[in-house]
Design a binder for these strands. Structure first.
Lengths: 341, 341
DNA sequence: ACCTCGTGAGCAAACGATTGTTCAAGACAT
DNA sequence: ATGTCTTGAACAATCGTTTGCTCACGAGGT
């Protein structure tokens, strides 16, 4: 393949008739350092003309900064994570950083983020998203030698987290269903032992109480975040008497499972049952009927986390803790008022 | 945040009572170089004990190898690209390489992959997937100073490509529909000016001819790769007389659009119309009815491309050209025999 | 006229690893 | 006992940048 000799600082220096150190200072905008205006011009144009790009390795060695962020996610075939990645890459690129991606399939055994990234001086900081329990996460992260921000959860004992306000999400979703006239609303809960799952359950309950309804524990069924889970949990709710008129799913995937179960049981959506999800994905449009959702700023989680991490690195801030708010209901066709009577 | 002093080669050398150069040779398994067995043991255990990890920047500077691959994709919210990324990360990690991700929104203006990655010595090679026309792609890539492999297409004038055999995919899909008894099969084509789209169309035609059926041009409607496109193209096919009994969509997304249109037009699937897609995605399971597809080795595209690129880098091969084959029909519920008569 | 000071730019030493070359010491043959 | 090999390991240069320091020169103050 093509071999092009690369332009070095020295080449620019020679072209401009100055020392390499002077070129370096000019190109790095050292305002404190004094360089004549005319010399500066000569250097800048020489650099542009030659198409000079600093060697990232050399610079990284000298300055101990890589201008690279690591992002560790457990899956790539889940839109939740890829949305965050999109936000993170945008933010990183906008500030001149690159993104090194690493898949952490099992954090408790695979210490990749420590060994490969942090310890090898490949990244200046880490963005981490994971499904592991808090203690496991903390244990891994305490070995990490660079600043980090945890995405999409609030973990005990970890300061820098950017999470979604899933309490508000479930509350607002439930309130939307209430506003349609539903009184018996079932909840296909996420995992009830994790942060996001418990926050959603609390938000759902808060909305009901706010409407003067006493939450019925029989209407909560743990579905996790999968199609199968949603299917199973929806069937469980169908057996409850009196039957609910609406179901609030934690995720789009579990809502899809619910829709499948409802189709199978010949329950019409939305005529006999409304279904909605506390978060939104593009594929909600492909469902039958298209799924009403609450739009959550998933992309912004990545963006805010990356920006926060960079602020941390540049000492513009000392802590990154955000709780991002829902962005409103996306009304599609899976919700309607309950049938009279 | 935590600052840990990092262990350097010199630290290991001091601990083992030898010179840094000797440590380097041992740790890099220089079989040619002679080092006493006892010394070797002492070094290895000292390195392990101290938890030594070579500084990637320093090594990269000296060796002009970064052990990093760049991967450039136009979107991250499209499973086609994320599947390839999964394969690529697995292959890269397995061979000790990291993956630097970059989003190329518009290749003709954004020369990111050249400026930021190749020219700055941040990557040893590039994996590129893009939707741009061949000429644009070639123009951008000819500036790139590192080896590269193009994923998911065969581009004119570019040697190293890993593509899917979409001719075979469309042919096998069509043959499956034929085997169910369908004779009038519509094709929701991809874009007819790109490589994959034309290959699929050809495969679809070949299958029909193989069954002694003369392809009816009226049964081909360009749908592109979107929900809307699939909806529109499906409606067009419904107007053709006599009406087809099956539709072959290029992608899962356009099939979703077709399902939507068929629901709206009260055409039952699969009773009145079979629908299938020439490629598979997880979300096909969430459709109503679940979509019959052909499984394509999307993940393997990334894997093979990354492995090929690494072979290229290590001079184990001089060219990477693969055409990956379909992996069989995934029968779900959207296909059935046509109704008698 | 001499000393001081400010300005602009070069010198040279890092950063941490790799690698060509040199060197010391023991083995062996003459 | 002397010279030649072989073996094991140290020495030192180098990769391309950044950055502390030195230095030359001209201006300005006394």
């Amino acid at each position: 393949m093509r071999i092009k000799k690369s332009i070095k600082l020295k080449d620019v220096a020679r072209a401009a008739g100055v020392d390499a150190s002077t070129v370096s200072r000019v190109l790095n905008n050292e305002t404190e350092q004094r360089v004549g205006a005319e010399t500066r011009d000569r250097i800048v144009s020489a650099a542009r003309e030659l198409g000079y790009k600093p060697n990232a390795m050399a610079r990284g060695l000298r300055t101990a900064r890589t201008f690279t962020l690591g992002i560790a996610v457990p899956q790539l075939d889940n839109p939740v994570f890829t949305q965050m990645m999109i936000g993170a890459t945008r933010a990183a690129h906008a500030r001149g950083y690159e993104l090194l991606i690493t898949l952490i399939e099992d954090m408790s055994v695979d210490s990749g983020i420590y060994e490969r990234l942090a310890s090898a001086h490949r990244v200046d900081g880490l963005l981490v998203s994971t499904l592991e329990p808090d203690e496991v996460l903390r244990k891994v992260l305490e070995r990490v030698s660079v600043p980090y921000v945890v995405m999409n959860r609030k973990a005990r004992g970890i300061e820098n987290c950017v999470a979604l306000d899933n309490f508000a999400a479930a509350k607002q979703s439930t309130e939307y269903l209430l506003s349609l006239g539903h009184r018996r609303i079932g909840h296909l809960a996420g995992l009830l032992n994790d942060y996001n799952g418990t926050r959603r359950l609390a938000g759902y309950r808060a909305a009901l109480k706010g409407a003067g309804i006493d939450p019925d524990p029989a209407l909560v069924s743990e579905a996790g975040y999968t199609l199968e889970g949603g299917d199973r949990a929806a069937r469980a709710l169908l057996r409850v008497k009196p039957r609910p008129t609406a179901m609030l799913a934690a995720t789009v995937m579990s809502a899809a499972g619910a829709l499948r179960a409802l189709h199978a049981e010949k329950v019409r959506v939305p005529a006999d049952m409304s279904v909605m999800s506390t978060n939104d994905l593009q594929i909600a449009d492909t469902f039958h009927p298209p799924l009403t959702t609450l739009r959550m700023p998933l992309l912004e989680v990545g963006q805010v986390a990356a920006d926060g991490l960079l602020d941390l690195l540049e000492s513009k801030t000392s802590a990154v803790t955000h709780l991002l708010q829902p962005k409103g209901v996306v009304v599609r066709d899976s919700t309607a008022a309950p049938r009279a009577g």
